[in-house]
Amino acid sequence: MHKKIPFYKYQGAGNDFILIDNRNASFDRKNEQLVKKLCDRRFGIGADGLMLLQQAENYDFEMVYYNADGAEGTMCGNGGRCIVAFARDLGIISSTTDFLAVDGPHQASIDGNQVTLGMIEVHDFRKDGEAYILNTGSPHYVQFIKGLADYDVFQEGKKIRYSGAYGDKGINVNFIEKENNGYFLRTYERGVEDETFACGTGATAAAMTVALHHNMEGDINIPIRVLGGQLYISFHKKDKAFTDVFLKGPAKFVFAGEIDEANL
């Protein structure tokens, strides 16, 4: 008897994820090879990452996030928004939630397909040349670029991600450019090892970089456009500290199905 795995597909601004309801703990969270196969776009379902929704004492649920390479990952902002929509669709929550992720507790609210996700506070940053280095739940390198629409994000991002400066684990690489009333962002994500259509923790790091670069203070809201849509980041900034950090954007159900583990 082959094991069939029920799954749900969601996307947040083009960042797509496989979601599995694992409240009964039937999915082996240590099986990284299976996760990698499920995320494969040619031989599996295909996704930028996979999430397990699990039971968590004193919280509505726990989010366990995996990169497409099968390894358990750091925080994923777009994934966080998608799992909130998933929890709502499962009837676990209604419009607000407190859930647990790898970087600690998160609060979120959902209205239709728009999710506002509370992110961790950031109290420090450093610079690498002209670039800013911040950890918004995942480590990010952010650099201003002119002519970003035509920039080779894959090759340039890959060089920085694998440069010895960031050790074996590497770093996510973001390039931003001012446009109209906000900024345009493109991201090379480690673990996916490619440019993605959106990166929530990257958009958060990019907005913070803008505030640092322009010495902005107080309550700030910065629109960040990504390849897959529009995100909004808000926070309170005082000196180097970012508090009340929120990432707002879409999270949409795409389809559901089941896959036979033996066929992978």
Rank of each mutant, 00 (worst) to 15 (best):
H2A: 15
K3H: 13
G12Q: 10
N15M: 10
N15P: 05
N15V: 05
F17D: 00
I18Y: 06
I20Y: 03
I20F: 05
N22D: 11
R23P: 03
N24G: 03
A25R: 15
R29E: 14
K30T: 13
V35S: 00
K37P: 05
L38K: 04
L38V: 01
C39M: 09
C39H: 10
D40G: 03
D40N: 15
F43C: 10
I45F: 14
G46W: 11
D48L: 12
G49H: 08
L52A: 03
N58M: 01
E62H: 03
V64M: 12
Y65T: 06
Y66D: 02
D69R: 06
D69C: 11
G70M: 09
G73F: 00
M75I: 01
C76W: 04
C76K: 08
R81W: 07
I83P: 06
F86Q: 04
D89W: 15
S94C: 10
S95L: 02
A101T: 14
G104N: 08
V115W: 00
I120C: 09
H123V: 02
D124F: 08
R126S: 13
K127S: 09
K127M: 12
E130Y: 14
Y132E: 09
I133L: 14
I133N: 11
N135K: 05
G137R: 08
S138I: 01
H140T: 03
Y141N: 07
Y141S: 03
Q143D: 07
F144N: 08
K146E: 15
K146C: 12
G147P: 07
G147D: 11
L148V: 04
V153A: 07
Q155F: 06
Q155I: 05
E156N: 13
I160P: 04
G167D: 07
G167N: 06
K169A: 13
I171Q: 11
N172R: 09
V173E: 08
E179A: 13
L185R: 00
R186Y: 12
R186Q: 12
T187F: 03
Y188Q: 07
R190M: 05
R190W: 02
G191K: 08
C199L: 08
T201V: 02
A205H: 00
A206K: 00
V210A: 12
V210D: 12
A211H: 09
H214Q: 14
E217Q: 15
I222M: 10
I224G: 06
R225F: 05
R225V: 06
V226C: 01
G229R: 06
Q230P: 03
L231Y: 06
I233S: 09
S234E: 12
F235A: 08
D239S: 14
D244Q: 15
L247F: 02
K248W: 01
P250W: 03
A251K: 02
K252I: 04
V254R: 10
F255V: 07
A256T: 11
A256Q: 15
N263H: 14
